[in-house]
Amino acid sequence: MEDQWLSWAKRISALADTGLHYCRDTFDRERYEELSALSREMMAALGDATPERIATALGPREGHVTPKIDVRAAVIEKGRILLVQERSDGRWTLPGGYAEVGVSAADNTCKEVWEEAGIRVRVKRLYAIRHKARHAYPPDVLDFYKLFFLCERLDDAALDPGHEVLDAAYFAPDALPPLSTPRAIARDIEDAFAFYAQPQRPTIID
Rank of each mutant, 00 (worst) to 15 (best):
D89S: 15
P182W: 07
G102C: 06
L142F: 06
K132S: 12
T66E: 12
R40P: 00
C151D: 04
A99W: 12
S180G: 04
G59T: 03
A133E: 11
L46R: 12
R134T: 00
K124A: 05
K111I: 05
A133H: 07
A45P: 01
R187Y: 01
P60V: 01
R11C: 02
H64G: 00
I129K: 01
R153I: 09
V113E: 12
Y137W: 10
Y32D: 00
E34W: 14
A16N: 08
V121E: 01
D143M: 06
A37F: 09
L35N: 06
R11E: 14
A133D: 15
D143H: 12
M1Y: 07
P95H: 04
D160I: 00
H163M: 10
S13L: 03
A192C: 08
G96Q: 11
L83I: 05
F171Q: 02
R80N: 06
A9V: 01
S13M: 03
M42H: 07
P199I: 04
R31E: 14
R130A: 04
R24K: 14
P51W: 08
H135Q: 03
I81M: 12
L15N: 05
V71W: 11
P138G: 06
A16L: 10
G59E: 10
R61T: 09
I54K: 03
L159W: 08
I129V: 15
A172V: 05
A158Q: 11
A192I: 04
G118I: 09
I204G: 01
E77K: 10
D167G: 01
A157Q: 13
T203A: 15
P139A: 10
L126G: 10
F171V: 01
D107Q: 14
A14I: 11
A175P: 04
A158M: 13
P178A: 00
R24S: 10
T181C: 04
R53W: 07
V65K: 02
D167P: 00
L142Y: 02
D107M: 15
F144A: 01
G90L: 11
R80F: 05
R11H: 12
R29W: 07
A128Y: 05
G162C: 05
M42K: 01
E152T: 12
G19F: 03
A128I: 02
